[in-house]
């Protein structure tokens, strides 16, 4: 005997009369995804936006010099940009702003994703603006310049997200900063050690794909962890 199946039919009701008319007459005002992201963007600190724009300005100034090294210097700046994105996520975790947002508007996971999208999209926009300018004054095409800028950014962001999940508070912040500095130094060291040879290889697209995969894995893991925290 399947009692659960029987219970499903154990509470009969007379058919509602005005359901169709009611639902036809009333429609729900949905909070669109764009509105949600824009709302979350409003919670991000002003200094984060200003610093991000500052990075764009610095990249453009470097590009305007017409130096062949400009792309490498700009590329080594992107980890700092990624660090800002990770710090923004760390801040909401540290001060519980995500939880507050959960209580009044959307689920924690949605709020977190919207925040990541807001900051990440702004940073990608900055890199997308810088890439053609650097390419015009440099020696590489736009796609390759974009890959040079995006790879260290994604690498720092993914490692930073991973570390911020493992280490909390001050320790996490220090480790994330160390990762950003390491990636930054690594970029400059690669240029100095293998610069010419590297230009001729297909290493950068491969590095970009690896960084992209790592970023997706880390974002998914972070969102999953958020779900686990909600349950516990």
């Amino acid at each position: 005997m399947n009692i659960k199946k029987e219970l499903k039919n154990a509470f009969p009701v007379p058919a509602p009369v005005g359901r169709r008319e009611f639902l036809r007459a009333h429609r729900r005002r949905e909070l669109s995804t764009m509105m949600l992201v824009l709302t979350e963007a409003g919670y991000v600190r002003l200094r984060t936006w200003l610093s991000s724009l500052g990075f764009l300005a610095v990249m453009l100034v470097i590009a305007s010099g017409g130096e062949p090294e400009a792309i490498w210097v700009s590329s080594s700046l992107t980890p700092a940009l990624a660090l800002m994105a990770v710090a923004e996520w760390g801040r909401s975790r540290r001060y519980g702003t995500v939880e507050l947002e959960l209580a009044c508007r959307t689920p924690r996971r949605t709020a977190l994703l919207a925040r990541m999208v807001a900051v990440g999209a702004a940073h990608l926009g900055i890199l997308a603006l810088a890439a053609p300018v650097l390419s015009a004054w440099g020696e590489m095409n736009v796609a390759r310049t974009g890959a040079h800028l995006l790879t260290p950014y994604l690498l720092t962001a993914s490692l930073g997200l991973d570390l911020s999940r493992r280490c909390r508070g001050r320790e996490g912040a220090i480790l994330c900063s160390a990762v950003a500095i390491t990636v930054c130094a690594l970029g400059l060291w690669i240029r100095r050690a293998w610069g010419g040879a590297l230009e001729r290889t297909k290493l950068w697209p491969v590095a970009l794909i690896v960084a992209l995969i790592l970023s997706v894995i880390e974002v998914v893991s972070t969102l999953r962890e958020t779900e686990v925290l909600t349950w516990s």
Binding site: V13, V17, G18, R19, H26, R28, L31, R105, P107, T110
Partner: peptide, 23 residues
């Protein structure tokens, strides 16, 4: 039946008026 339908519609009117609950 009549009261149940009134309360159901009142419940949905309140939900329809809010634009926050997505999940």
């Amino acid at each position: 039946r009549s009261m149940a339908e009134d309360v159901t519609q009142e419940t949905f009117l309140r939900w329809l008026a809010s634009d926050t609950y997505r999940d």
